[in-house]
Design a protein around this nucleic acid. Structure first.
Lengths: 229, 229
DNA sequence: AGTAAAAGATGACTTTTATCAGGTTTTGTC
DNA sequence: GACAAAACCTGATAAAAGTCATCTTTTACT
């Protein structure tokens, strides 16, 4: 199997004809593949990035530290997803930190290639725009959830999100292994409250757990909790 | 003073040379100016928009109703600001409702003109992209604030935001008149908690009020509250 | 496999925030 | 300017969530 980095960015850009053969070749010629071990930092809040990362394998958490010192996970990115594009486009330092949750393989597209396409390739730019419009819509929804839903509703919503957006493992468990603290940071609550909520969901047979792994047993009931029923 | 609608979109796009003379003329020829009275709805969540609105005068709140039935204000838009661009770009129904907080004058750019420029004018698209990247960064920050800050911190942050982003009136009060309930919906809390917080800030001489109007008296102290000091 | 460190779990308690209920003031309209 | 409606404010209480302390289990490492 050849190096699929060029495919990864194309797929991510969600458009089949965005890049011409020359651009593909240019990107392919200049890309760098990097590896990160579990727990290693890809980049930190405030750093100036000089390119976009594209995840080839493994999972990373994108988080932001509040003034209170608590971390909030804004997104989990896995295979095929780009990270860092927002700050490259805004031409400013990144507002997020990225830490590997697994051993990862990441390919790196230098800023210059992005910028070049941004200026010359309308379709490329349009696709990025649509992508970002979607991220923004998602963010609006998250703001409302954070502001108005209970911890239980948000935990349920987070589990549902993880279950639908990451491939399940062979036993049907959610395919991303997060610590309880990471889940709490994704939900925006304290570790203890998160654990208690998971315990209560388990007692109600809505989920089952095995170590860190979580399996959703009753989707309908989980959905009702999300809706506040 | 002539009709400044074409200027408004250009200014909003935050770029001086985005639109050529022909495009400007095309937009200018096809625009429609509409008026909305205080309390009227510009559009509602789920509606399909067929163009972008551009605020010429007055103020509007963009909000979203959660499944719990409570409204969350996501943004306040005033003179010069565009609304509806996200859903036009995503080509889907809008995820927000817009209600006039004042009597408003709004101009309307039909979808076709936006789409045409989106396909032919890289600079136009690039500018929209940068704009949206900025909105996204702002949304990330808001998510963290909602998840991790207390009501008092969020009220303080909201007041600071309103004070810096909208022109003050002649007496130095914040230039947008919101009900306490609107402020609560912006902060993401209950009306009563919002009122109590404002009362406490007033007692500490950090703000003063006169009816609905609010004036910030001690910026430094307000800033400390935002930081959680 | 043994051990230390990390993560998970749970109870007790405190703080924050929501909710309900009732009064007061402001605002808009005839 | 009188009246009704809306908005504002406050107190009491309940519910939700955070914090702290402690113990158990799991994981990582030599």
């Amino acid at each position: 199997m050849g190096n699929r980095c060029e495919n990864c960015i194309v797929r991510q850009l969600n458009s089949l004809k965005v890049l011409g053969k020359e651009e593909l070749k240019a990107i392919s010629d200049h890309k760098i593949t990097r590896k990160f071990k579990k727990g290693e930092s890809l980049f930190s809040e405030g750093e100036k990035l000089n390119g976009i990362f594209c995840v080839r394998s493994g999972v990373t958490k994108l988080s932001k530290i509040s003034e209170n010192g608590k971390g909030q996970i804004v997104k989990i990115a896995s295979k095929g997803e780009m990270i860092g594009q927002r700050s490259i486009i805004s031409e400013e330092q990144t507002n997020l930190s990225a830490v590997a949750l697994d051993d990862m393989e990441v390919c790196f597209i230098p800023k210059e290639h992005i910028m070049k396409n941004l200026s010359s390739n309308v379709e490329f730019t349009k696709t990025l725009l649509k992508h970002m419009a979607n991220d923004l819509k998602h963010a609006d929804t998250l703001i409302v959830n954070m502001a108005q839903k209970t911890v239980k509703q948000r935990v349920a919503e987070t589990l549902s999100y993880l279950d639908t957006n990451f491939e399940r493992d062979l036993d049907g468990f959610i395919g991303v292994i997060l610590t309880r603290e990471d889940i709490a940071n994704l939900v925006g609550t304290a570790k203890e409250a998160c654990i208690r909520t998971l315990t209560s969901l388990r007692k109600d047979n809505i989920i089952s757990t095995q170590g860190k792994r979580i399996k959703i047993e009753d989707k309908k009931a989980l959905y009702n909790i999300i809706q506040g029923i």
